[in-house]
């Protein structure tokens, strides 16, 4: 199966494609955007600095982008580019799945580094939920990669939008859309975050941690087991591989063991403080300051000290 030297990006009805373009551009001799979704998205892509835009046409009323799966798969397989980069989002993964099925390629997700070795794409990514890093070379066929979509890109001289017939679409129809009120916590911009984990014994004890967060002038967050196994804290507050990644100045981890699935969400913090009763908890290998102790004793003392220092 011979592939061309082109780099393609798949756009899933969303113009925030800066991350896709940044990842794809160095990997091919020309950059092609395959757009499923509204015309305005195709036009945005056309002005984002790509060499060519292939557009599958305006979706009829209520037809979601997922209906274009087979079309995306077919067009990509026919073009057989060197690499296809798609967004690691809910609808992005549907389209990437179509590309994978059509080409037989595996979708390489969570790539931290993409490069070209000769004419072969080399991908470095975290595997096993983040426990190790792997570097692989795609030796045959199209490389298929999922990355964070990034932001909008504009300002280039727009290229023509080539509309093609998508062929039969899947039978999906959106009949209703409800906006859910955002709970209003923005962990992404919080300078201080206090995270709590399984070390907490009872829901009432959350008050202790909330007090520490308040004393530190920060927000409350949690590691996933707390938010999903036990619904004490809202989903919008969890940190980790399938929650959020944050970059606060200070992250205090209370009763959190330091499992990799959580740490990937917080390791960019400037300073990490860990409180845990198990001296061998993995988190102590990844913190700046650690206290081995019972959180029920330590947290109130820390809250008091923080409060006094900040007043």
């Amino acid at each position: 199966m011979n592939v061309s030297s082109q780099a393609w990006v798949v756009v899933a009805d969303d113009a925030t494609i800066g991350g896709l373009l940044g990842a794809a551009r160095p990997l091919g001799t020309s950059l092609v955007a395959l757009v499923a979704g509204r015309r305005e998205v195709a036009e945005a892509a056309a002005a984002a600095g790509v060499d060519r835009v292939v557009w599958l046409g305006e979706p009829a009323d209520g037809v979601p982008v997922e209906a274009y799966g087979p079309a995306v798969g077919r067009v990509v397989a026919e073009a057989a580019p060197r690499v296809v980069v798609g967004p690691a989002t809910d609808s992005g993964r549907v389209l990437l799945g179509a590309v994978a099925a059509a080409t037989g390629a595996v979708v390489l997700a969570g790539a931290s580094e993409l490069s070209l070795d000769g004419d072969k794409v080399v991908v470095e990514r975290a595997v096993g939920g983040g426990i190790a890093l792997r570097r692989d070379r795609v030796v045959a066929g199209t490389a298929v990669v999922a990355v964070a979509p990034g932001g909008t890109v504009a300002g280039a001289a727009p290229v023509a939008v080539e509309e093609v017939d998508p062929g039969p679409l899947l039978a999906l129809r959106v009949t209703d859309r409800r906006v859910t009120p955002r709970v209003g916590v923005d962990l992404g911009s919080a300078k201080t975050v206090v995270g709590v984990g399984r070390g907490l014994k009872a829901r009432e004890d959350l008050a202790l941690i909330e007090d520490l967060a308040a004393a530190a002038g920060g927000e409350l967050a949690c590691s996933r087991p707390l938010a999903e196994g036990v619904d004490w804290v809202g989903k919008e507050r969890y940190l980790g591989i399938s929650g959020q990644t944050i970059t606060p100045d200070l992250y205090v981890a209370v009763g959190i063991s330091g499992q990799i699935q959580h740490m990937v969400g917080v390791r960019e913090a400037t300073t990490i403080v860990a409180v845990n009763s198990d001296p061998h908890a993995p988190i102590f290998r990844e913190c700046d300051y650690g206290i081995v102790g019972d959180l029920y004793t330590v947290v109130p003392l820390l809250a008091e000290a923080f409060r006094a220092a900040r007043s």
Partner: peptide
């Protein structure tokens, strides 16, 4: 289609 290069 994939050849491992290295791990870390």
């Amino acid at each position: 289609t994939i050849a491992p290069v290295s791990t870390a």
